[in-house]
Simulated assay, not measured.
Amino acid sequence: MDCYVYYRVSSHNAGAARLAVARLFALTATRFGVSGRLQWRDNASARDTAAGTTTWMERYDGVGHAFVAALTPLAVESGLTALIDGERHAECFVDVVDAPPACA
Results as ranks from 00 to 15, higher is better:
Ala16Glu: 09
Gly52Arg: 00
Gly62Asn: 08
Ile84Asn: 04
Val9Lys: 02
Pro73Asp: 05
Gly64Pro: 01
Gly36Ile: 04
Arg37Phe: 09
Ala17Ser: 13
Gly36Thr: 05
Pro100Thr: 11
Asn43Ala: 15
Val94Pro: 00
Leu24His: 04
Val34Cys: 05
Pro100Arg: 11
Ser10Gly: 12
Gly86His: 08
Leu27Arg: 08
Ala29Glu: 03
Pro101Phe: 09
Ala20Thr: 02
Pro100Gly: 14
Phe32Leu: 03
Ala90Ile: 15
Ala75Met: 13
Glu87Ala: 15
Ala69Ile: 11
Gly52Pro: 02
Ala70Pro: 01
Ser45Arg: 03
Glu87Gln: 14
Trp56Asn: 00
Glu58Arg: 03
Ala17Pro: 04
Pro101Tyr: 06
His12Tyr: 03
Ala90Arg: 12
Leu24Pro: 01
Asp98Tyr: 09
Gln39Val: 13
Ala69Cys: 09
Ser78Asn: 06
Phe93Gln: 09
Ala46Gly: 11
Tyr7Arg: 06
Glu77Ser: 01
Glu87Leu: 15
Ala14Thr: 10
Arg47Tyr: 11
Thr72Ile: 12
Ala90Lys: 10
Gln39Leu: 15
Cys103Val: 14
Ala22Cys: 08
Tyr6Gln: 06
His65Met: 14
Trp56Gln: 02
Arg41Phe: 10
Asn43Lys: 15
Pro73Leu: 09
Ala14Ser: 08
Trp40Ser: 12
Ile84Tyr: 05
Arg37Met: 15
Trp56Met: 01
Ala50Gly: 10
Phe25Thr: 00
Thr28Gln: 06
Cys92Tyr: 13
Ser10Asn: 05
Arg18Leu: 12
Gly62Lys: 02
Ala16Gly: 05
Gly62Arg: 07
Cys92Trp: 15
Met57Cys: 15
Ala102Val: 11
Pro100Trp: 06
Arg18Phe: 06
Leu83Ala: 00
Asp42Lys: 06
Leu74Tyr: 00
Tyr6Pro: 01
Ala46Met: 08
Asp98Ile: 13
Ala69Asn: 13
Ala50Gln: 12
Arg8Thr: 11
Val76Glu: 08
His65Phe: 13
Gly62Val: 08
